[in-house]
């Protein structure tokens, strides 16, 4: 933890040192609001819950999270600070973890700033606040999953645009891996176990389960192990680049 903290602190502060953080937060909040009220017809539904609001989260994250993660490593490579960072006496896992946690904390801040909608819905009716709380936890876990994927992809390229595009595609596949679009490709030839395995990687399935109000340990473990997997891959990729 002694190693992770300074890295985390610098990285987290870096978001707010540039307009990036503010632009991101404003767009995130604006998009959340627009989707919920105009496309999701929050008022017209006349139901005091936030299921509409949370329903858009995976799709917003799909584009906004890669926008954060693309710079994580690609930027360090481009500006040469990678060499500085990796020659400081910090174990690689700590650097990877510190950067990831900072990005995650930043999305947590953005997510937390959607609190007015929670207040609004309580003002309009009496929603199940337990469900809403669970949904927030689920949303945060899902954002972590997207971020870990994006960080790993960012580590493998020095080009931020490539990092962004590839991250969006990979995140998209993870989001909908439970949907027919993906499964049909495998169903015709792959064994059922594989199809089920692929479908179990779906962010949507796990997020929907949590946002129904039940924080099932299996869903939580899913997101945490996915994050761990991609961060490990992140470490391996950077280590491989050392070998040239």
């Amino acid at each position: 933890m002694n190693y992770v903290w300074p890295i985390f602190k610098r990285e987290f502060a870096a978001y707010f040192a540039t307009p990036l953080a503010y632009v991101f937060i404003v767009i995130f909040l604006f998009a959340m609001g627009a989707f919920t009220f105009y496309i999701g017809h929050f008022y017209e539904n006349g139901v005091a819950d936030l299921s509409v609001f949370f329903g858009f989260h995976p799709w917003l994250y799909l584009f906004l999270v890669p926008a954060i993660s693309m710079r994580l490593w690609a930027e360090e490579r481009r500006s040469g600070t990678m060499e500085l960072l990796l020659t400081l006496p910090v174990p690689l896992w700590a650097t990877v973890a510190g950067k990831f946690l900072a990005a995650w904390a930043f999305t947590a801040v953005a997510l937390a700033l959607t609190f007015p909608i929670w207040i609004t819905v309580n003002f309009l009716g009496s929603p199940d606040n337990g469900v809403i709380f669970a949904s927030y936890i689920g949303s945060l876990l899902m954002a972590g999953g997207y971020l870990a994927i994006g960080a790993c992809i960012s580590a493998s390229t020095g080009n931020q645009v490539i990092a962004f595009v590839v991250s969006v595609v990979v995140c998209f596949l993870f989001t909908i891996s439970g949907a027919p679009l993906v499964l049909d490709v495998f169903r015709s030839w792959a064994p059922l176990a594989l199809v089920n395995a692929i479908s179990s990687f779906s962010f949507l399935t796990h997020f929907t389960a949590i946002s129904a109000g039940v924080i099932d340990l299996r869903d939580v473990i899913f997101f945490f192990s996915l994050i761990a997997l991609f961060l490990t891959a992140n470490v391996v990729i950077i280590d491989l680049k050392k070998t040239g």
């Binding site: 870096a14 040192a17 540039t18 040469g80 600070t81 060499e83 500085l84």
Partner: peptide, 15 residues
């Protein structure tokens, strides 16, 4: 025990 100045003296420009 090493102090290293990489080529081009990279640093975090926004700091």
């Amino acid at each position: 025990v090493i102090g290293y100045l990489p080529e081009g003296a990279p640093a975090y420009g926004d700091m």
